[in-house]
Each structure stands twice: as C-alpha cells, then as structure tokens.
Design a protein around this nucleic acid. Structure first.
Lengths: 139, 139
DNA sequence: CTAGGTGCAAAAGGTTTGCGGTTAA
DNA sequence: TTAACCGCAAACCTTTTGCACCTAG
C-alpha cells in the first residue's frame, strides 16, 4: 500500500457518484499534479485485488469504480448514464444461482437498468444534456 | 427485420459460447463475405432493442451477446475468460432490490465471477493459454 | 418515394504495455 | 537489496461516426 494508492482510494471514497478511471484521473491530478493515467489504472487494479474497491461493469463505455463496502447492487440510468447504489430487499438479501459442478464463485454483481427519478420520461438526449449542464455547473 | 439481421441472429443462436461483436463479425464473414463491422454492431443493437438478444456487460474487454431467451444469469471465468449461462435457484427465482422512489427498471443482469471447472486452480496465464490452444484447434 | 439499413474507412475513446527511473519492505 | 511501483508515451482494441449507396415498406 503506497501513498499513491491511498490517495486514489481516498478520492474514490469521497466520490458520491461512480467515477470511471478517467474521471478519477482528473480528480487525482487536481489533488496532486504529475499522476499518470497508467498509475490510476494500476492503483485501481491493486485496490480491487485487495477487495478495497469494486469494479462495476454496467455500461458499455467504461468500467466504474465503487468504494462502498456494504453488499449492494447498482442501477444504471439509460437516459443520463449515471450509476446509483441500490439495496437488496431484506427478505431476499441476495440473488442465488445454481453453479455447475466444479465451478467456484468469488464475486457477484447485480445490475439493474432503467430510468432514474430525475430523468423520468424525458427523452434520452434531453436527459443526458440536462445532466451534463448540471455537472458542468458543479453538480 | 432485414436479411442481415436474420443472419446475425442465426449465427448468435447457433453459438454455444457468448461471442463478442468481433467474434460474431468473423463468423458472419465466413457465412457471407462483405459484411462490415459497422453492420454487425448495427444489427446487434437493433436486435437488443427488440429484445431478441441480450448484451452482457461482464468483462472489461468487450460486450458479449446472448440469444438464450430464458431468464438466467452469467458466470465469468477469471482464468480463461469464458462466459457461461447459469440458472437461478428455483426457490429464489431472481434478485430483488429496493429501487428509490421514481426509479423505473427495465432490465436486470446478474453476473457471477470466479473459476470454471476446467480451470480449477490452475494459474490464470496457464488456464487462458490452454483454452486458447483448444479454441484454435476447433474447440 | 422515403426512412432506414449497409459498407467502407477513419476517428474516438478506454485500457494496456514497455521502459527508464524511484520507492517500499 | 530487490521486487514492486511510478510516470510517460505509444500501442492496442473495441466501438462509433460520416458519407455514399442500396433496400424494404
């Protein structure tokens, strides 16, 4: 665990959204100039290997990262592209599958896709644009 | 529904694995020369929009496609990179989440990661190489 | 006739890699 | 000391886009 990795982890834990590696790279550069893209990827991979962050494969564009340690699922809004944490139902705390003999599972990932409350029934283009504007103005 | 789309769908339905767009492109060219990558992507997107194929976002490298119509989850072997269909437990037929107010879900996708039976506890490199060799020899 | 599908090539990201220099254990 | 890490730049691969032509309804 090096100082770079601690920095990346702190930035990710402070993030309410689910940033991509590029987004984390931008935030890391703000915190300290001279960080490289390769290092961000390197750190994220090491942190994921140690179970400190989760890689979220939910959108086609890029891998998102999540430092929330509690077991949860993710919601992807197909209109604005944002990713949200969602809880499992208490009565059915998690999905169960029948693995073929000899298969050994280490992780699972449940993704739900649809529309978030903010996007409602707005058109996809309109919703994405609205969120882009809001983001540029600083959330 | 055009002839190209029918072709792509047939190739995907005939596939036991979960091919990427590039892999489908190769198989499509064998079936009929002169198909372009853009068309394969175009067809897959149209077929997905109509619910005839599912996009599987499970690996970081590329989107996989699946024409199996029954509700099921996917298993990704972290050693060889293959993707398998897995069934839900009958008692707990599907994952349930608590969506925030105003959120509307259209799809869900459960991914399990780990090691398949063939890879067992072989090293990642060795397992991937073994599968690559087997594939080159024609499965 | 007209909207949408197709082929080609080029571009646009996201991610990985090779290499020289640096740092943690 | 030595294996692992960092920064830089280039490479790689997947996916998208612009444009001209063709096809289905």
């Amino acid at each position: 665990m090096t100082s770079r990795r601690r920095q990346v982890l702190e930035i990710l834990m402070a993030a309410a959204d689910h940033p991509t590696a590029s987004e984390l790279f931008v935030r890391a550069r703000e915190a300290c100039a001279g960080v490289s893209m390769a290092t961000v990827y390197n750190c994220l991979e090491a942190l994921a290997r140690n179970g400190l962050v989760r890689q979220v494969h939910i959108a086609r564009d890029a891998t998102r990262f999540c430092a929330n340690p509690v077991d949860h699922a993710h919601f992807y809004c197909e209109a604005c592209g944002r990713v949200f944490d969602v809880e499992y139902e208490k009565a059915r705390p998690g999905p169960a599958v029948v693995l073929p003999a000899g298969f050994h599972a280490t992780h699972r990932e449940l993704s739900v896709r649809g529309r978030c409350a903010a996007c409602g029934r707005k058109g996809r283009a309109k919703a994405r644009a609205a969120w882009g504007r809001a983001k540029r103005k600083g959330l």
